[in-house]
Amino acid sequence: MSVTTGWGKTARAVAAAVMLVAVALTTSAWGADGVRVEGEDYNLYGSHNIGGYPISTEYCGSASQYFAADGIDLPGEWIMLEVMVEETGCYDVTVAYQSYFQNAVGLRLRVVDYPEPGQSVVSDFTLTEGYGFG
């Protein structure tokens, strides 16, 4: 027979909460040859909204882990994310996104403080053939 005290329940609840937080904070993970960073992780690092739609985390049924960063709609707006690189090399950076149907969106990837503090690497690209918001 097992007896669960109030403290035991509390400890289990705390442990479960800690595990949930740990899972929530480790949404990026290395696969065999790359890493995926969830857009909604901008909540941990920051964003810059100028106007239009507010930048926010939105539920999206077709999104990885069901959430995405929405409202990036005006030039100059950005979301900040973090990536841990384990191997020297050149990486293909892919952004999975939604936009208005057949609407092209120009984005820029800017790696901050690389190769030296105060410098950054920028790479512009265009998202095309948007399928519309789901």
Partner: peptide, 22 residues
């Protein structure tokens, strides 16, 4: 590394994820 996804042109975008593949 910290990195930014900056909006340059066009309309609204919703970013699901960013993937770095060697």
């Amino acid at each position: 590394y910290m990195f930014l996804i900056e909006h340059l042109s066009g309309d609204r975008a919703r970013v699901d994820y960013v993937e770095f593949v060697l």
